[in-house]
């Protein structure tokens, strides 16, 4: 019976590892490889930590299993009268400290690229593609008129859509993220981008979608009863399609229903 607990705890750890290993084949893993350079770096960092933590987890549980097997056999024995080991304490303080510090310092660079404005692409900063204003429970998008630059204050010729953000593919783009009411979070899972939209702040967010396709846009910060349905999409398009989209948007928006049609049609 005593060996039971050795098998129980080791077995649980083994099942956890096994489950994590087969999870991806059922789709219980990243929603596809990241389609952005920054996202790929985030994935790499994730895998680096995964390797370190997996080794630690498995190591600790091998030791635990051994202890339960060896010292939990139920055979009558007297425990060793041992209060500790200075050398061991030093080793198992310094080694994890080094590893943790390495992880922390190694991550700085990607974080700086993602969030520190001086590292942003100057072209993207000079010409933000849109202002995204979150509100219960939708994403309102304001583009500058084609050929113009986005202003902080709405302009008469700005273009508006809801829940459908279009951006050019394959280059860094910057949006200005605002909230009209409560906290929201702008989450593009496929691009590994997330940023809270904070009432009263306008936060620059940049990302780059390398594949022309439609991506999910999710609200990741609780924003009220309809939080779950605050669904948008991001459409990454080739430059000419993007331009055509904005032109069409402009035409539709400023169509007064009269000027476009001739009397004889």
């Amino acid at each position: 019976m005593n060996r039971f607990w050795c098998f129980f705890f080791s077995g649980a750890a083994a099942i956890a590892v096994l489950f994590s290993a087969i999870g991806p084949s059922y789709g219980w893993w990243f929603p596809g490889a990241s389609f952005s350079p920054l996202g790929a770096q985030i994935d790499d960092l994730f895998y680096l930590i995964l390797v370190i933590t997996s080794v630690t987890f498995i190591g600790v549980h091998i030791v635990l299993g051994y202890i339960l097997w060896q010292y939990g056999s139920g055979k009558p024995r007297r425990a060793s009268f041992l209060h500790g080991s200075h050398a061991l304490e030093v080793v198992w303080s310094i080694v994890p400290a080094g590893v943790l510090l390495f992880i922390a310092l190694y991550q700085m660079d990607v974080w700086a690229r993602y969030r520190v404005k001086s590292n942003f692409d100057p072209a993207a900063v000079a010409h933000p593609v849109a202002e995204v204003t979150a509100r219960q429970f939708e994403w309102r998008i304001r583009y500058p008129a084609p050929g113009k630059t986005l202003q902080d204050k709405p302009q008469p010729d700005d273009l508006y859509t809801v829940n459908d953000l279009h951006v050019p593919v394959g280059k860094p783009v910057l949006i200005k993220l605002r909230s009209e009411d409560v906290l929201h979070s702008f989450f593009l899972p496929h691009l590994r981008v997330k940023q809270d939209a904070v009432p009263g702040l306008s936060i620059p967010v940049w990302f780059q979608a390398d594949k022309a396709q439609v991506y999910d846009l999710v609200c990741a910060e609780l924003c009220g009863w309809g939080h779950y349905k605050m669904r948008g999409q991001l459409t990454a398009q080739r430059a000419e399609e993007y331009k055509a989209y904005l032109d069409e948007l402009s035409q539709t928006q400023f169509d007064d229903g009269v000027a476009a049609k001739k009397n004889d049609e």
């Binding site: 996202g39 960092l45 994730f46 930590i49 995964l50 933590t53 993602y114 590994r192 997330k194």
Partner: peptide, 13 residues
């Protein structure tokens, strides 16, 4: 440790 790492936390937060 995953969520302590800021870049990874961007995604898993």
């Amino acid at each position: 440790i995953f969520m302590a790492a800021v870049p990874v936390d961007i995604y898993i937060h």
